[in-house]
Every structure is written in structure tokens, then in C-alpha cells.
């Protein structure tokens, strides 16, 4: 009765995005917040928990190219991940199952501060949870909440392949106001667009020293 991450709407070969399974299991076992930072290792499309695949993904192209499709725990629309993306996830105990927006915002603030400490300044939050530099989205995030637990995961686009993103993803069915109808190419940018010297591994190392999960331990 607990169910998986699958949705009744899925009619396409799709897997659960469980790269943070150990992170979540550890937090449930220990009751202490924890962080996971890792470069994504392959090309994949990751759908939100409630995404309608055919509305958001060009399934014919994805299938033709053999690109994996996952469904994540958190909400939001589909995204394209490749090795130019750095994943930053945090899970922490949180009382009850409400307070979503407050916790979500705290996680975004936490990551923005971490990025700033790592030398990536000028990042701000726009839309619901996008991280943005100069009106270009440089990271997307999702949030999952269950009783006693909160989980936040962000994909930072460091050196993304925007051409493939535009090829595999349709224009999303809903968009933040600041996107203003822009195409993926005009809306999204890699962090390296603003900081050309930055690579995924460099940013992973810099953030690893600066993102302390302890601040969420007492989240209510």
C-alpha cells in the first residue's frame, strides 16, 4: 500500500529516480540531516511526480536515442540531465508534513549561500524554486515531503548540453512568470556561461566543503 514512485499515468518505460535512496535511508535511520553531491553520470530525462510524459517530453526522440526516462519523488515538470549537471540533494527530519514552502525556501537559501561561498555569486531564486543568474535559469529543484521527513534535490546546470535539452523537452505546460515564453535555449544557461572556468567536478569539490546539512536538523 505504500506504493512506489510510479504513477498511474505512466505508459512508457520509466524508472524511479532513486539515486538518493541511500541518502533517504540514512536520514530515516539516524534522524540526522545529510547531503549528497554528485555529478550526474548519463543523459536522462527526469519527470516530476505528476508529470504527463507526452505533454512534456518528445518521447519519440527520447526512445530513438535510447535516453533513459526517470520519475523523481518531487514535483515539477520534466528536466533533462546529463554529465554537465551537478546534483545536490539534502534530506532532513522535519516535524509533521506541512510547511512545504517555508522548508523549500530554506533549502534554496541554503544552496544559494553555498554557491556564493563557493564563488558563484549573483544567484537568486525566481519562479517557484529556480535558481537564476541574470534572468537565466541555472538550476532547478524539486521537493518531497512525507511525515517527519523533507527532501530537496537541485540539479545545477554547470556545463549542460542545451541543444539536447531543447531536443528532448517540449515547452513546459506551465512556466514561471519570468520565463515569458522563452525557449529552453534563451531561458536556461549553464553556470559556466557566467563563470567560464567552472567545471562540474570543481563545483562539486567547492560545494562539498561548504554545504553543511546540520542547519536543517532542527527543522520544524
Amino acid at each position: 500500500m505504500t506504493g512506489g514512485i510510479q504513477s498511474k499515468r505512466d505508459d512508457f518505460g520509466i524508472r524511479s529516480f532513486d539515486y538518493d535512496r541511500q541518502l533517504l535511508a540514512g536520514v530515516k535511520a539516524t534522524g540526522a540531516a545529510d547531503v549528497s553531491i554528485y555529478p550526474f553520470h548519463r543523459e536522462a530525462v527526469v519527470a516530476g511526480r505528476g508529470s504527463r510524459l507526452d505533454r512534456e517530453i518528445r518521447l519519440d526522440r527520447v526512445q530513438a536515442d535510447g535516453v533513459a526516462v526517470y520519475r523523481r519523488m518531487g514535483g515539477g515538470c520534466s528536466v533533462f540531465l546529463d554529465p554537465g549537471n551537478l546534483i545536490v540533494s539534502i534530506a532532513f527530519p522535519a516535524e509533521g508534513f506541512g510547511g512545504i514552502q517555508t522548508l523549500f525556501d530554506r533549502c534554496s537559501d541554503w544552496l544559494i549561500r553555498g554557491l556564493s561561498d563557493a564563488g558563484v555569486s549573483g544567484v537568486y531564486q525566481d519562479g517557484i524554486s529556480d535558481l537564476v543568474i541574470a534572468d537565466r535559469k541555472i538550476a532547478g529543484s524539486c521537493f518531497y515531503r512525507a511525515k517527519g521527513l523533507a527532501y530537496y534535490s537541485a540539479a545545477i546546470l554547470v556545463t549542460p548540453d542545451l541543444a539536447k535539452m531543447a531536443s528532448y523537452l517540449r515547452h513546459p505546460p506551465r512556466e514561471p512568470a519570468y520565463r515569458q515564453g522563452r525557449s529552453h535555449a534563451a531561458f536556461v544557461a549553464g553556470v559556466n556561461f557566467f563563470y567560464p572556468e567552472l567545471t562540474v567536478s570543481t563545483l562539486a569539490r567547492l560545494l562539498g566543503n561548504r554545504l553543511d546539512p546540520a542547519f536543517m536538523d532542527a527543522a520544524a
Binding site: 506504493g3 511526480r49 518531487g74 514535483g75 521537493f143 518531497y144 515531503r145
Partner: peptide, 13 residues
């Protein structure tokens, strides 16, 4: 768990 709900960006059990 009763159900899964989704708000604008977050999923909740």
C-alpha cells in the same frame, strides 16, 4: 500513506 499530492513544485505523501 493515503495518497500523493502535488503542489506547484513539491510532492507530498
Amino acid at each position: 500513506p493515503l495518497c500523493e499530492m502535488e503542489t506547484d513544485k513539491a510532492a507530498v505523501t
